[in-house]
Computed example of a mutant assay.
Amino acid sequence: MSEKIEFVQRENLKEKPDPSDLGFGKYFTDYMLSFDYDLDKGWHDLKIVPYGPIEISPAAQALHYGQAVFEGLKAYKHNDEVVLFRPDENFKRINDSLNRLDMPEVDEGVLLEGLKQLVDVERDWVPEGEGQSLYIRPYVFATEGMLGVRPSYSYKLLIILSPSGSYYGGESLRPTKIYVEDEYVRAVRGGVGHAKVAGNYAASLKAQTNASKLGYDQVLWLDGVEQKYIEEVGSMNIFFVENGTIVTPKLNGSILPGITRKTVIELSKQLGYDVEERRVSIDELIESQRKGKLSEVFGTGTAAVISPVGQLKYGEKEIVINNNETGEITQKLYDNYVGIQSGKLNDPQNWRVVVPKY
């Protein structure tokens, strides 16, 4: 049994929200995990504290120079078990992001243990409905109150929890409409596109707003140099099925290495599909659809797991994929992925991590 970390009791517990009206990111649990860093002490004071406002200097460097990274993962309830899904991958990636922004890395084992204890405290907050989960948001930001462009000397890490409803509202998979962005770019190689950096999302909002006004759900980004090669969707990695082969853009330094992406690639191979990771141009995609080779398109990410794409718009061209219906391969991957996640299917790779009762 691991040593229990410090726990600060709150005076009154919150009333839990109606499970039928959870939405996403609207409600937060009673507690959060807190971890501090100072240059002279390193990471210290790991503890579970009441969820609530935090005090921060108006000169905190995160507010002025953007040193802030985050992660997203989920906890699921199956029978009496609460389970995390591949949390080690998230903590590896948060360290990659921290390294890119010249922020201090965290002991992944310590962080995982802290997360398990936090989720154990809040296990009654994990919703049990179909497709529901407890969303987990770890994030790190610079706290030193000093104006000067250099790495901060102090940081705070928090993990907050939010009960979330089903992405599809309990319905079957709904194909989305994607707008291919040809004016703005998300990232370039050598930048921070491969890291889960807060500023990446701020830079994407203008394009997303424009796409929404035109009636599209998400933006598909092209590369930042030639604006020719497909990279990723606003909140997802992207996959195509061409002549029965699953194809996805190869990681190149400006694409986020999604954990759902990685899992879908591994799962696809286990199910017997051929998978290619390579450069894919938007022109190739349109030509593939014209010739009848493109049968399915889907995105992958923490929120939806797998999201079918029914329409793509690029300039004046608008293409419909698979009659705007969910494809057979997309559905099969979704069913297997969610089945493993929820404990309904076998987990030969040990992706599920059961949260112990401390």
Rank of each mutant, 00 (worst) to 15 (best):
I255T: 01
L84V: 01
R150P: 00
D217K: 15
I5H: 02
K213S: 05
Q311S: 06
L345F: 06
Q227A: 04
Y139I: 09
M32G: 10
G191S: 14
F28D: 04
L285C: 05
G66R: 02
K262G: 11
E276I: 09
L147V: 14
Y273L: 07
Y179A: 08
D88Q: 14
R261K: 01
M146I: 13
R189S: 10
E226H: 09
V8I: 15
D217C: 09
G343E: 05
N237Q: 02
T302I: 01
T209R: 14
V264G: 00
K293D: 11
G52K: 12
K291H: 10
E296L: 11
G339I: 06
K196F: 01
V119G: 05
G244V: 12
K196L: 06
K156D: 07
L345A: 03
Y31D: 01
Q311L: 02
G224M: 04
L22M: 12
F28S: 05
N323W: 05
L267W: 00
G199F: 04
N252Y: 07
Q270R: 08
P50W: 11
E318S: 14
Y216E: 08
V320T: 13
P50Q: 04
D30Y: 00
Q67L: 00
P87Y: 07
L118Q: 11
V355K: 02
I160A: 06
S172Y: 14
N336T: 14
L33N: 07
K4P: 07
G170C: 10
N99M: 01
Q67S: 00
D120F: 10
L13N: 09
S164V: 15
I48S: 09
K177F: 06
V149T: 06
D96S: 10
D21G: 11
H78V: 13
S2E: 10
S172E: 15
E144G: 09
L134R: 05
F239D: 05
Y216I: 08
N243S: 15
S166Q: 14
R10A: 02
G170S: 13
Y135K: 03
V192Y: 10
E113G: 01
L285A: 06
S162R: 13
Y273S: 05
S152C: 01
S2H: 05
D182S: 14
E328Q: 09
A59K: 14
Q218H: 15
A211C: 12
K74N: 05
K177A: 08
V320M: 04
F28N: 07
A303D: 05
S281M: 10
Q67H: 00
V233H: 05
N12I: 11
P257S: 04
E242F: 03
Y31A: 03
Y358P: 01
E316D: 15
L98S: 03
G170H: 06
D182C: 10
V197F: 03
G25P: 04
Q117R: 08
S133V: 08
R278H: 06
T248N: 04
E232P: 13
D120S: 13
K26Y: 15
T330N: 09
E105K: 13
D124L: 09
Y179G: 11
K26C: 11
V185S: 08
Y65A: 00
D36W: 08
H194I: 13
I329A: 15
A62V: 00
R93H: 06
N322G: 03
L101W: 00
Y314R: 07
N323I: 08
K74R: 06
K26P: 05
K14W: 00
L294M: 05
D102I: 13
W221Y: 01
E3Q: 11
P138L: 14
F240L: 00
V233I: 11
K74P: 01
